[in-house]
C-alpha cells in the first residue's frame, strides 16, 4: 500500500477532518492508487528545472495604504452561525 491507514488518519487530522473507519479504508485504497499513478512524474528528468507556481509572470502589486470603504460590522457578521455584541462567538478555547 502506497499510503497506510495511519497516514490517512494523521493527514486528515492535520486538515481538521474526522474520518470514520470505512472512509479511512476507502481513502487509503483510492489515494494509494492515485499516489502510485503520480509516481510516473519520477520518469521526468527535472534536474535544474525551476518550479512554476503561477502561469503568468507576476511581480508584487503595491498600492497606497489608504483607508477605503469596507463591509460594516453588521454585514460582515451577517453570515456567522453565532454572534454577540459585534463579535463572532466560538466555543471556549482555554479551559
Amino acid at each position: 500500500m502506497k499510503i497506510t491507514k495511519e497516514e490517512i488518519v494523521h493527514v486528515a487530522n492535520l486538515a481538521c477532518l474526522d474520518i470514520d473507519e470505512t472512509s479511512t479504508d476507502k481513502f487509503a485504497d483510492q489515494l494509494g492508487k492515485i499516489l502510485e499513478y503520480v509516481d510516473t512524474l519520477n520518469r521526468v528528468d527535472t534536474k535544474d528545472v525551476p518550479p512554476t507556481s503561477h502561469a503568468i509572470f507576476l511581480t508584487n502589486v503595491f498600492r497606497e495604504d489608504e483607508v477605503s470603504k469596507h463591509l460594516d460590522t453588521e454585514t460582515a457578521l451577517a453570515n456567522s452561525p453565532e454572534k454577540e455584541d459585534g463579535h463572532f462567538v466560538v466555543p471556549k478555547v482555554i479551559g
Partner: peptide
C-alpha cells in the same frame, strides 16, 4: 517529491 516535482513538471509543460 510531490508538490515540488509537480511544479517543475509544470514548467516543462509550459
Amino acid at each position: 517529491a510531490y508538490y515540488g516535482k509537480a511544479s517543475q513538471v509544470r514548467t516543462l509543460i509550459m
